[in-house]
Deep mutational scan, measured.
Amino acid sequence: MEVRTIKVFTTVDNINLHTQVVDMSMTYGQQFGPTYLDGADVTKIKPHNSHEGKTFYVLPNDDTLRVEAFEYYHTTDPSFLGRYMSALNHTKKWKYPQVNGLTSIKWADNNCYLATALLTLQQIELKFNPPALQDAYYRARAGEAANFCALILAYCNKTVGELGDVRETMSYLFQHANLDSCKRVLNVVCKTCGQQQTTLKGVEAVMYMGTLSYEQFKKGVQIPCTCGKQATKYLVQQESPFVMMSAPPAQYELKHGTFTCASEYTGNYQCGHYKHITSKETLYCIDGALLTKSSEYKGPITDVFYKENSYTTTIK
């Protein structure tokens, strides 16, 4: 009895394709271990004539594949690729409408935090270190965002349907971005203890939790000093293409032309909904596939993004 075979390709990165001759009487799992086709788990399936010449994702289970996976995804987590594939199996079914010149995501599976993050990423200057993220990001900007969303979920250790947080998501993504040249110098002034300067680099240099107003941050924000008295913390120097200011959701007025974009969060910790506000020729609110415009805006804002380049204080 002759062994019926077909020729397929296996890959971990969709760049390096490895030619395989597979036995049609055995499952993919018996031949390769966990195997995925377009995100779908085909591990328990036997090869079919229609699979001839198709590319299958496999887990990096030998040295060659491990090197290829690390170079593309910059992670050695053995569960990463499987999590990416199972997320992709959902995100490829989502709709990605162009809204006001940006790629958004039609609401499904509690994905409003991903839509808000995706919209924000198209408006701030950011370059990702893992080629996987950078490639998928370019495709997302062009309207094909399924891979990018699935990668975000995998890097953030999230599953489809789980509630997510924009600030946490951005923080994970910033860790995989090139923020080497970003720098922030802060000064804390206390009447009792004097003053202390701190220099922050990388992710810490672009994120701040405690106030939404970048102007206020430049002037000074009140913080408790270690001595128990009130101290003032203010920005001395900022070198970065953008800054992200966050605070627990509270009524906040966004003035046209003073910011790049913002995240609105309605609801409580267990259950809520994100919308995205962007400042173009007027203010726009993007909620999944829905767009509304207004000249002014007041609502429960939790993150505001500002364009920056270089700032030095005039406070002496």
Results as ranks from 00 to 15, higher is better:
Glu2Asp: 15
Arg4Met: 11
Arg4Gly: 11
Thr5Gln: 13
Ile6Tyr: 09
Ile6His: 07
Thr11Tyr: 03
Thr11Val: 06
Thr11Pro: 05
Val12Cys: 12
Ile15Gly: 07
Met24Ser: 13
Ser25Val: 07
Tyr28Val: 05
Gly29Glu: 08
Phe32Pro: 03
Gly33Pro: 05
Thr35Ala: 06
Thr35Trp: 06
Tyr36Cys: 06
Tyr36Met: 06
Asp38His: 10
Gly39Val: 09
Gly39Trp: 10
Gly39Met: 10
Ala40Gly: 14
Ala40Trp: 12
Val42Trp: 12
Thr43Gln: 15
Thr43Lys: 10
Lys44Glu: 14
Lys44Leu: 10
Lys44Met: 15
Pro47Ala: 12
His48Gln: 09
Asn49Cys: 14
His51Phe: 06
Gly53Val: 07
Lys54Gly: 10
Phe56Ile: 09
Val58Asn: 08
Asp62His: 09
Thr64Tyr: 10
Leu65Ile: 08
Leu65Lys: 15
Val67Glu: 15
Glu68Pro: 07
Ala69Thr: 13
Ala69Asn: 07
Phe70Arg: 15
Tyr72Ser: 11
Tyr72Ile: 08
Tyr73Asp: 05
His74Ala: 07
Thr75Gln: 10
Asp77Pro: 02
Asp77Tyr: 05
Pro78Tyr: 11
Pro78Leu: 12
Ser79Phe: 15
Ser79Pro: 06
Phe80Met: 05
Arg83Ile: 05
Ala87Tyr: 01
Leu88Thr: 05
Lys93Arg: 13
Trp94Asn: 03
Lys95Leu: 15
Tyr96Gln: 02
Tyr96Val: 02
Tyr96Lys: 03
Pro97Asp: 05
Val99Pro: 04
Asn100Thr: 09
Gly101Cys: 06
Ser104Glu: 04
Ile105Val: 06
Lys106Cys: 13
Asn110Asp: 02
Asn110Phe: 03
Asn110Thr: 00
Asn111Pro: 03
Asn111His: 03
Asn111Gly: 03
Tyr113Arg: 03
Tyr113Gly: 02
Leu114Lys: 02
Thr116Gln: 04
Leu119Lys: 04
Gln122Cys: 06
Gln123Val: 06
Leu126Val: 14
Phe128Arg: 03
Asn129Cys: 09
Pro130Tyr: 02
Pro131Arg: 08
Ala132Thr: 04
Gln134Tyr: 07
Asp135Phe: 09
Ala136Asn: 11
Ala140Glu: 02
Ala140Pro: 04
Ala142Cys: 15
Glu144Arg: 10
Ala145Gly: 13
Ala145His: 03
Ala150Tyr: 03
Leu151Gln: 01
Leu151Phe: 05
Ile152Trp: 02
Tyr155His: 05
Cys156Phe: 03
Thr159Lys: 15
Thr159Phe: 10
Val160Phe: 05
Gly161Phe: 03
Glu162Met: 09
Leu163Met: 09
Gly164Leu: 00
Arg167Ile: 01
Glu168Pro: 01
Thr169His: 04
Met170Gly: 02
Tyr172Arg: 14
Tyr172Lys: 14
Leu173Asn: 01
Phe174Ala: 03
Gln175Trp: 07
Gln175Val: 07
His176Gly: 02
Ala177Tyr: 01
Asn178Cys: 14
Asp180Ala: 12
Val185Ile: 10
Val185Gly: 02
Leu186Val: 13
Lys191Ile: 09
Thr192Trp: 11
Thr192Asn: 13
Cys193Gly: 02
Gln195Arg: 12
Gln196Tyr: 13
Gln196Met: 13
Thr198Asp: 08
Leu200Lys: 13
Leu200Phe: 15
Leu200Arg: 08
Gly202Tyr: 03
Val203Cys: 11
Tyr208Arg: 03
Tyr208Thr: 06
Tyr208Asp: 06
Tyr208Leu: 06
Met209His: 09
Gly210Met: 00
Gly210Thr: 03
Leu212Glu: 04
Phe217Val: 08
Lys218Val: 07
Val221Glu: 06
Ile223Lys: 06
Ile223Gly: 13
Pro224Val: 14
Cys227Ser: 00
Gly228Thr: 04
Gly228Pro: 01
Lys229Arg: 09
Gln230Asn: 12
Ala231Trp: 00
Thr232Ala: 06
Lys233Val: 14
Leu235Gln: 01
Pro241Val: 00
Pro241Gln: 14
Pro241Gly: 07
Phe242Asn: 03
Phe242Glu: 02
Met244Thr: 01
Pro249Asn: 00
Tyr252Trp: 11
Tyr252Leu: 07
Thr258Arg: 10
Thr258Cys: 08
Phe259Lys: 01
Phe259Trp: 00
Ala262Gln: 00
Ala262Asn: 02
Cys271Asp: 07
Cys271Ser: 11
Gly272Ala: 01
Gly272Leu: 00
His273Ser: 00
His273Gly: 01
His273Met: 01
Tyr274Met: 00
Tyr274Trp: 00
Tyr274Leu: 02
Lys275Cys: 08
Lys275Gln: 06
Ile277Asn: 01
Thr282Cys: 09
Cys285His: 06
Cys285Gln: 13
Cys285Arg: 06
Asp287Leu: 01
Gly288Val: 02
Leu291Val: 13
Leu291Pro: 05
Lys293Cys: 10
Ser294Cys: 10
Ser295Asn: 15
Glu296Trp: 10
Tyr297Trp: 14
Tyr297His: 06
Tyr297Val: 05
Lys298Ile: 15
Lys298Tyr: 14
Pro300Ile: 15
Ile301Gly: 00
Ile301Tyr: 01
Thr302Ser: 07
Thr302Arg: 00
Lys307Tyr: 15
Glu308Gln: 07
Ser310Met: 15
Thr313Ser: 13
Ile315Arg: 14
Lys316Leu: 10
